[in-house]
Nucleic acid binder design. Sequence first.
DNA 1: TCTGGGGTCCTAGGACCC
DNA 2: TCTGGGGTCCTAGGACCC
Length: 420
Amino acid sequence: MIALIDCNNFYVSCERVFQPVLIGRPLIVLSNNDGCAISRSNEAKDLGIKMGNAHFMIKDLIQQHNVQIRSSNYALYGDMSQRVMQVIKSFVPKTEVYSIDEIFCDLSELEAYNDLTALGIQIREAVKKYTGIPVTVGIAPTKVLAKMSNKYAKKLTAEIGVHCADTQDLIDCLLRFTPVGDIWGIGSEIEKLLLAKGFKTAADLVNAPEEWVRKTLTVKGQRLLNELKGISSMLFTDERPAKRNIATMRSFGTLLSAKKDIQHALAAHMATCAAKLRKEGTCARKLQVSIETNNYRTQDKQLSHSIVIDLPVATNSTPELIRYAMKALDMIFKEGHNFKKTGVVALDLVPQPNVQMGLFDTVKRSREKKLMKAVDNINVSFRKDTVRYSVQGYSDKWKLQQQHLSNPYTTRFDQLREVS
DNA sequence: TCTGGGGTCCTAGGACCC
DNA sequence: TCTGGGGTCCTAGGACCC
């Protein structure tokens, strides 16, 4: 049996832990740049605010119902996530962290617990007690069914917060309850296709001819069908696989058209991305640089360009990568556009010790490695960008809008809460 | 007039996830 | 005025090989 445990309205719940006055009130957390709603309290959901609704389009609703707003505070959410996961891991040895607010648990070795619902309740109470975050537990024989069971618990057994589908009858009930579009792995495109063919719920899909599923939904559909039938077809991986790509991209706080401004932003993103590479212990063999205009602005000339360049020697050195990023930007930049976003993706990653040196390479790599280490140490000990490259500039033009940011309560000493 | 049949590797783009 | 930022996996099709 597998459990999927996820945090309820995670970002909203994190804000509420440190500002209890927000409990019981409609609250939303906005995406970067305060663009759109990405986490909603139940009260906000009841007002009709949808995932991804643009902030400026729901301003009336917000004012009318005094909806509370927070900018996203990833330092806080990341740290709270680790605490939640740590509590759960103390109950279950074999787990797989799936996202910032979700974790799969392999319960097959926990035979001591013949009552898995009771275990779920116990975990839920512990997480709440030690972190203040409410979670929901869905239990079933496969990952896809566990996801389904979790959704079921949210809708039908919210007070308990746990649902365990451990008999065929209960699984059949889950399947009948779940619309095809709510199945994990079925997005809007495939949902359309399935509805057109008359499949309304997971129970309809589970009886679909295998041949047809294989042909129209390819191997992913085939695996999904197996999982629905209770046959595990998705790997359970204890350890996090090495990342294949590392990306850093951001919208600007305002539209920019001068190349210089975009160079500043791109250099800053490249520096952030390079630091992520070093933290991961990998080097990039390829670099993708992209620029985009705002495609919601129909009055603007649109441009969305990206280019991938090969690096002669795989690297994670900030100055070297910035040089290549600037060169790539030269190749794709065009005057006369209002740009909204730029970013980089480090591709084709290799573990640092496996980097193949170049025969004609002139970069002093061991010296640069030491320098990067010193820079990282300073920027971790003090604050991001304490040491940085001048090409990042000093302008704030491209910086994010974050008008409703809460404090990083758990990651900065000067922000620790006092308890009296 | 008329031009094969295997392979591999890589990339772009789509679909999905949170 | 104003619409996020990461990721993964899969397939089709092109380029290339003999």
